[in-house]
Computed example of a mutant assay.
Amino acid sequence: MNHLNVEQIKEIIPHRHPFLLIDEIEDYVPGKLAIGYKCVTYHEDFFAGHFPQEPVMPGVLIVEALAQTGAVAILSEPENKGKIAYFGGINKCRFKNKVVPGDKIRLETKIVKQKGPVGIGEATATVDKKTVVTAELTFMVG
Score class of each variant (00 low, 15 high):
I90H: 01
L75S: 13
L33D: 01
T124G: 02
M140W: 13
R106C: 13
A125W: 02
L20G: 00
Y86Q: 11
E136W: 08
E26W: 05
V141R: 09
L21E: 12
F47Y: 08
T131L: 09
P14T: 10
I90F: 01
P30H: 01
K83A: 03
L107V: 11
A71Q: 03
I12H: 11
A34M: 06
L4T: 06
C93H: 07
K110N: 06
F19G: 06
I105T: 12
V56I: 15
F47N: 02
G142M: 08
E122S: 14
I62G: 03
M1F: 13
P78Y: 01
L33H: 01
Q114I: 04
A73M: 11
C39M: 05
F87Y: 14
E64T: 10
L61H: 03
D45I: 06
A71G: 02
E11Y: 12
A85V: 06
K10F: 08
C93L: 15
N80V: 00
P117Q: 11
A123R: 11
V100K: 12
N5K: 06
A123W: 11
P30T: 03
P58Q: 01
T134R: 10
A48T: 10
I13T: 02
I22Q: 06
I111L: 04
L107N: 12
L75H: 14
A65H: 05
T134L: 13
V141W: 05
E24C: 05
Q8Y: 13
I13S: 03
G36W: 00
F51L: 12
V60R: 07
R94W: 07
H50V: 00
K10V: 00
A65I: 09
T126P: 08
P101T: 15
T138E: 10
K32S: 10
E26L: 13
I13F: 05
M140D: 04
I12K: 10
V40H: 02
M57G: 00
F46H: 14
V99E: 07
V100G: 03
E11P: 03
I62R: 07
Q114P: 04
M57I: 02
K32V: 14
P52N: 15
I25V: 08
I105W: 03
A67W: 09
A73V: 07
Q53P: 01
V29A: 09
D23P: 11
G142V: 11
K92W: 06
A65V: 09
D27L: 01
Q8H: 12
E7G: 09
E77C: 09
P58L: 02
A65D: 09
Y37G: 07
K38P: 14
K104Y: 13
P14I: 09
K10R: 15
V99F: 00
P55V: 10
S76V: 00
I12C: 06
K96V: 06
D27Q: 04
F47H: 04
E11Q: 15
F47L: 07
K113G: 12
S76N: 04
P14F: 10
V56K: 07
K96Q: 03
L21R: 07
E24A: 04
P117D: 05
V63L: 12
I62V: 15
P78V: 06
V133Y: 00
L21K: 05
G88V: 13
V56E: 02
